[in-house]
Simulated scan of single mutants.
Amino acid sequence: MVTTELITRARAGDGEAFRELTEPHHRELQVHCYRMLGSFQDAEDVLQDTLLAAWQSFGGFEGRASLRTWLYRIATNRCLNARRSAARRPAKEWDVPGVQPPEPTRLGEVVWLEPFPDALLEGAIDVPLGPEARYEQSESISLAFVTALQVLPPRQLAVLVLRDVLGFHASEVADMLDSTVESVNSALKRARAGLQRRLPTADRERPPASCSPSEDAIVAKFVQAYESADLDALVALLTDDVFMSMPPMPLEYEGRDAVARFCAGIFGSGRKFDLVPTRANGQPAFGSYVHTPTGIRHGTGLFVIALAGDRIRAMIRFDNGVLPWFGLPRSLPSR
Rank of each mutant, 00 (worst) to 15 (best):
R197Q: 15
R197C: 08
R198P: 02
R198D: 07
T201S: 12
T201M: 01
A202E: 11
A202L: 06
A202T: 09
A202N: 00
A202P: 09
D203S: 12
R204L: 02
R204I: 00
R204W: 00
E205V: 01
P207K: 01
P208E: 06
A209M: 04
A209L: 08
A209G: 02
S210I: 04
S210W: 00
C211S: 05
C211T: 05
S212E: 09
S214D: 14
D216Y: 02
D216A: 13
I218N: 03
V219S: 13
V219D: 06
K221I: 00
K221H: 09
F222K: 11
A225I: 14
A225E: 12
E227V: 15
L231H: 06
D232N: 11
A233G: 10
L234T: 07
V235S: 08
V235C: 02
L237R: 03
D240R: 04
D240L: 08
D241C: 04
D241T: 12
F243V: 11
P247I: 04
P247M: 03
P247N: 03
P248N: 09
P250C: 06
L251M: 10
L251T: 03
E254H: 06
E254S: 05
G255S: 09
R256S: 12
D257Y: 12
A260E: 14
R261M: 06
F262L: 14
C263T: 11
A264C: 08
A264G: 15
A264D: 13
G265V: 07
G268C: 12
S269K: 13
G270W: 08
G270I: 10
F273R: 08
F273E: 14
D274T: 14
L275Q: 09
L275C: 10
P277Y: 01
P277K: 08
P277Q: 09
T278C: 10
T278D: 03
T278E: 03
R279F: 03
A280L: 03
N281I: 00
N281A: 02
G282A: 03
G282E: 04
G282S: 04
Q283P: 00
P284K: 01
P284V: 08
P284N: 03
Y289R: 15
V290D: 13
H291T: 14
T292E: 15
T294E: 14
T294F: 11
H298L: 14
L302W: 06
L302I: 05
L302V: 08
F303A: 01
V304Q: 11
A306E: 15
L307H: 09
A308R: 14
A308Y: 06
D310C: 07
D310K: 13
R311A: 11
R311L: 01
I312H: 10
R313F: 00
I316A: 03
I316S: 00
F318S: 02
F318A: 03
D319R: 08
N320Y: 01
G321F: 04
V322Y: 09
V322K: 02
L323E: 00
P324Y: 06
P324K: 05
W325H: 06
W325F: 11
